[in-house]
Write a protein that binds this DNA or RNA. Sequence first.
RNA 1: GCGGGGGUAGCCAAGCCUGGCCAACGGCGCAGGACUUAGGAUCCUGUCCUUAGUGGUCCGAGGGUUCAAAUCCCUUCCCCCGCACCA
Length: 955
Amino acid sequence: MARFKDIEEKWQSRWHEQGLHISERDERPKFMIIFAYPGVTGYLHVGHMRGYTYVDAISRYMRMNGHNVLFPVGTHATGNGAISLASRVAARDPDTIDYLLRNGCPEGSLPLLETPEGVVDFFNDVYVNDYWKRFGFLCDWRRFTSSIRPDYNRFIQWQFRKLMELGLLIQKPYYAPACVECGPVAVDPSETDLSKGGNAEVNEYTLLKFRCGDEYLIAATLRPETVFGQTNFWVNPDVDYVRVRVGDETWIVSEPASRKLTHQMDDVSPLGPVAGTELLGMMCAAPMIGREIPVLPAAFCDPNVGTGLVTSVPSDAPDDLVALRELQRDPDKLRSYGLDPSIADIDIIPIIDIEGYGPCAAVDIVDRMGVEDGRDPRLPEAKKQVYKDGHHLGRMNSNCGTYEGLRVEEAKERMRDDMLASGEASLFHDLSEEVVCRCGKPVMIRRVDDQWFIDYGNPELTARTKEHCKGMGIFPSEYYNNVQGVLDWFRERACVRQGNWLGTRFPFDEGWIIEAISDSTLYPVYYLISSYANEGKVSEAQMTEPFFDHVILGRGEGADVSQQTGIDADVLRSIKADVAYWYPLDLNLGGKEHMTVHFPAFLFNHQAIMPDDLLPRGIFVNWYITGKKGKISKSKGGAQPIPGAAERFGVDSLRLYYAHVASPFADVEWDEDIVTSYRQRVERVMRMVEELHSLDGADRGVADRWLRSRMARHVEATRRHMDHYDLRQMANVVYFDIPNDIRWYLRRGGRDRATARKAVDAWLRMMCPITPHLAEEAWESIGGQGLLSEAEYPGHEDYDAESELAESYLREVMEDVNEILKVTGIKPEALHLYTAPAWKSKVMSVAVTMAEQGSLSIPNLTKSVMSDENVRSHGKAASEFAKKVATDMMRRSTSELERLSADIDEAGLLGEARPFLESELGCEVVVHSSDEDDLYDPQSKARASVPMRPAIYLE
RNA sequence: GCGGGGGUAGCCAAGCCUGGCCAACGGCGCAGGACUUAGGAUCCUGUCCUUAGUGGUCCGAGGGUUCAAAUCCCUUCCCCCGCACCA
């Protein structure tokens, strides 16, 4: 194990000494490849290395194929992940500290992690050194950049100026989660900003206004299409509501709702409380249908959800139905509120037809499940089921006026919009569950009027981008097709945030920070500039709009730009030439989560800003390595830290594991036993290399020709697979097919020094992309010249079809023998092989000729061959054989026919292989021709012989 | 509901696009053997049923096209992912 580590370090430093990581313009064709840079969110786990490893392997392959390769890396630190981690470290949060230490953070580094910048610097270092360098990647480290560096920020500001220039930045209102104290926060499952509620979603409610005298009761609903089924209104008698002034209207809502409203509407002012009980028994006018309905008591109205007031649609809402039935069963309850029980004599109004349900879906499901009251634990399930089916399968029925016949999905939007237009409704956004900021204050939805969006819905841009994608290399091919739909689906995206975020200031309003998805779209081109910034040749102050316009878009004169910015004219020329040389990006690789987020934005921004000849050429999507249950979680433990895995299994074992374990387009469950078996595989392969190299014999003929031919084919196969970056197939050839062939060669007695050395030479080169450290080590030990990583990938060699045919013939004979041994269980003292008699070969060759001419049939063949005296003399056996051959041949493909018609010297081959067969079987082997006189054939087996398939007799 | 992917022998997983050496690559697991009797090692053989190398059945299920289908067409069942939906 330690041996792995020594070898890894040795070669990594050699590569570095030799400057393999440095990519500079030259005369070779270029190849630029990246993986989507990771967010700086903490430690990564073994699953993340999968995609990164693909990129290094592909870039090494391209390098060995004569390409000048650029593989730059960076990190994405935009957002508030680092801020929140820093604050937790500063607060000495035990879980956070434990997490850091468990993953190998030195205790002494903790103070560094108390600032966001410190967090980013620390993890940049971890990613580069503990992950990427540790895995032997040949990246151009000089170009490393991170999205919160000032020079990067200048680039992003330039990008946004270009978007503005193109009219792709637009403003419109937006509803965003925000802490009442801290301002905007991110609501997502990682809960970096939150202490509670990361899974909450933003729901759009329709506020329905029920006129009640000169004021309105306001109900919030997610199902505005059900208004035709309204029978009554629910108020919680135990809740105190409030009156609020909204514009020139008076609304009644719950107290929490009134507070939420102030963040979303102008002109909201409190008027005073009103007890729920005061509202009971009133009549109010239901929107859309205009009918007067009674206000009834219900305990399930939660003041924290929606407005705390609910409209009742018992036909389709199980909650409403159950509450109504409870009231109807319990007249005393109504009397206790001073209401006449007859007020609850309400007819349910069916409004939606759903396949598989009666006219009122809620009645159906509640009765079917036997739900009796509002406390029944199955009620939520019933609700979920009926809503789901209603939404997907439902159609509005004849009680729904002009909406009759519409699908629920359509009716919902139409009815909402119609009520908004008539003033009977309003919109309200709320979180689906309670969300609490890290600071402890509640998070609510705030309306932002002047939110900036990138207009990815632009039809012209979408059309151009879709067209360009048709010419790209997009893997897997499913995504090639699907991306067209994704681009259509991609709409305006809010691109700036307010509040405490790391990132680039929005150039048109410095109070905003550009958000994470929007500042990570065009950045690959910045890798061509970052090295100049890193080396101090260009300062961020010099990165003006004309500078980027010039070096990226070719605008303006170099001399002018040089003068304006003070950048050395040669430096400027060099940057411009770099961009022209390296761009476009040949391949961008990212995980499947990017399919609907990053990749479309990446494509759109390039299409919008870059000239046609700098548009991306390829995308590669990889799926995940998962834990036992779903994705390996960074936070929940169970994740294998990367350096530990490298230590345990060896980097090359892991690289092979990633490359080979499954299709890149499938999730894989991390399983240490599997990884172990890959470690054994690389060990075995390396032993085999040594063994091959140590051979010092002479050419023995067919086996040697066979191995050379097979190696030539394997080289060809790997090249073919790598044409579409199919590392798995490539690895399969190199680490499985080739060893199998070499085993056969050795078993067969192959010992030729020249053949073996040639095979080792090609084989190590083929290994270099995936297991570079071990391949280099072996390369050195066999006296290879220079670094293998800089060597050429093996080229084309001719095949030797004849030796391949001969070996497969031999293997088939052995298989047949084994089959018989297995069935009979005998331990043979002698094996007799009988090659087919000449007359059978004659029949076969006539049949092949006929099959090729398309004239093969049983009568034709029989007639033809029976005219030959040498055949006819075998009488019935001859005609039966002809019949069998004809039947068989008529269903063979041309490639099989070729094989059958091959003219090989079976007796000669078997004769040559006799010593081999004898040692394999441990018995005497005798080769006969069925044509021999006085044939030794005690069981008359010889007659079963067929050309290419000798008869067998074991005794 | 919309969009996408998939069901292959104990497991994982190729192949299907460009039908034919496909009973179906390869790996793992398992069984037997060899070597060796230290090592999670290596090598050979076997691993649907049947059988002196044959024959039968087989690639979710059912039809069809074809001389020939895991591969093409139709029907059907099931699973997964994204979106949507859910006071």
